[in-house]
């Protein structure tokens, strides 16, 4: 399947990536090549096959409902690009 420039733009937006006009062509060609590799899958009829999400078919373990975490705000916010009054700051969020 080929991916044209407008689809590249749509996917890039979903993934919050900026792809400039000049890169778009290159990106779309590369992705089209990769999709050609991926599309080899279509040669096989898999109608009756159950999908496998995990290599090991085991089940979820459960955690006891206990508070085990302590407040580490000051330490963790030293990692933040921008924080104030205990909040992470970002450009204005629209409702």
């Amino acid at each position: 399947m080929a991916l044209d420039k407008s689809e590249v733009a749509k996917i890039a937006h979903l993934a919050r990536l900026h792809i400039s006009e000049s890169e778009a062509e290159e990106v779309s060609n590369r992705i089209t090549d990769i999709l050609a590799l991926i599309d080899q899958m279509q040669s096989l009829d898999t109608e009756a096959i159950e999908p496998l999400a995990h290599p090991l078919e085991v089940i979820q373990r459960l955690r006891v409902d206990e508070v085990t975490e302590e407040n580490q705000r000051e330490r963790l916010q030293t990692l933040a690009p921008n924080s104030k009054d205990g909040l992470y700051l970002v450009p204005k969020v629209l409702e």
Binding site: D65, V67, T68, E69, N71, Q72, R73, L76, G86, L87
Partner: peptide
């Protein structure tokens, strides 16, 4: 109404100071 979060051991108490109940997983 659980004591801790769905996937982490952070408290779920209402009304705490901002980001004092946000663990490394929650972040």
């Amino acid at each position: 109404s659980t004591k801790s979060k769905l996937f982490s051991g952070s408290s779920t108490k209402f009304g705490a100071e901002p980001n004092t109940q946000a663990s490394i997983f929650d972040l």
